[in-house]
Design a protein around this nucleic acid. Structure first.
Length: 211
DNA sequence: GTCAAGATTAGT
DNA sequence: CTAATCTTGACG
C-alpha cells in the first residue's frame, strides 16, 4: 500500500512551528516505478519579511515564486549553480515561509540512491541538502510540485522520533541582523545521518509544545 | 552591461 | 582552501 500524503492543513502554519514537527516524517519519492523513502532528521526554518537569510526577504523573483504560493508545495532551487535544495512551503499563501530539508536517514531504495550518488558511505548518501536531492533525483522540475497529491514527491506521517530534538543556529547563515542568529535549525540528537556541522555538539535541547 | 556573494559539495 | 557556475542585487 502507498503511504498517504500529509494533508494541506499540516503545512498551513508558521515555519518555525512546522519545522520541528517534520523531524521523523517520511519523505517519499516515486522515481521510475521505484519508491525511495527517507526519514527527515534535520531541517531549517526560513521566514519571509523579517528574516534577512530567507530567499523571500526581498519579495518574489522568478526563482523563489513558489515560496509565495499555497502551503504544502515544494520550493526547489539551484545553489551555487551546482546543487539543488528542497524546501517545504508553509504558512499562509503570500508570506514566503519555507522549511529547508537538510538531511535524511535513508530507509528504502538505497540502491537507487547509490546509483545517483556514487560509491559513498551510507551515511553520506543523504546527509546534506544538496546530497539528498541528488540521491532522490530531485531537481527544478519539482519546483512548485504539490506535496498533497501523493504522487512523485510527498510526505507521509510517522511516529514521533525517539531521539531528543535539538535546536541551533542555521548553517551557512551570517550577518549582523538579530534574526540571523536565531536557533531555527532543528535536528535529532546524535543521529548519525545529520549533516556535519560545528554546531552539532553545542545544541539547545528543544521539545515540541503539546497541543 | 559588469561584478560579487550565496540556505553547498568534492577535492587539493 | 578552492572550483564548480546559477541567480540575484548593487552599480554605471
Amino acid at each position: 500500500m502507498r503511504p498517504e500524503p500529509l494533508p494541506r492543513s499540516f503545512y498551513a502554519r508558521a515555519a518555525v512551528d512546522l519545522a520541528p514537527d517534520l523531524l521523523g516524517k517520511r519523505l517519499m519519492r516515486e522515481l521510475d516505478g521505484r519508491l525511495l523513502v527517507g526519514r527527515i532528521v534535520e531541517v531549517e526554518a526560513y521566514l519571509g519579511g523579517e528574516d534577512a537569510a530567507s530567499h523571500a526577504f526581498r519579495g518574489p523573483t522568478p526563482r523563489n515564486r513558489s515560496m509565495f504560493g499555497p502551503p504544502g508545495h515544494a520550493y526547489v532551487y539551484l545553489i551555487y549553480g551546482v546543487h539543488h535544495c528542497l524546501n517545504i512551503v508553509t504558512g499562509p499563501e503570500g508570506d514566503g515561509q519555507a522549511v529547508l530539508i537538510r538531511a535524511l536517514e535513508p530507509l528504502a531504495g538505497l540502491d537507487v540512491m547509490r546509483a545517483h550518488r556514487g560509491a559513498v558511505a551510507e551515511r553520506d548518501l543523504t546527509n546534506g541538502p544538496g546530497k539528498l536531492c541528488q540521491a532522490l533525483g530531485i531537481d527544478k522540475r519539482l519546483d512548485g510540485h504539490d506535496l498533497c497529491l501523493g504522487a512523485g514527491l510527498w510526505l507521509a506521517d510517522a511516529p514521533p522520533p525517539l531521539e531528543p530534538i535539538c535546536a541551533g543556529p542555521r548553517v551557512g547563515v551570517r550577518g549582523d541582523d538579530a534574526a540571523l542568529a536565531r536557533p531555527w535549525r532543528y535536528f535529532l540528537k546524535d543521529n548519525p545521518f545529520v549533516s556535519r556541522s560545528p554546531h552539532n555538539k553545542t545544541c539547545v535541547s528543544f521539545s515540541i509544545p503539546k497541543k
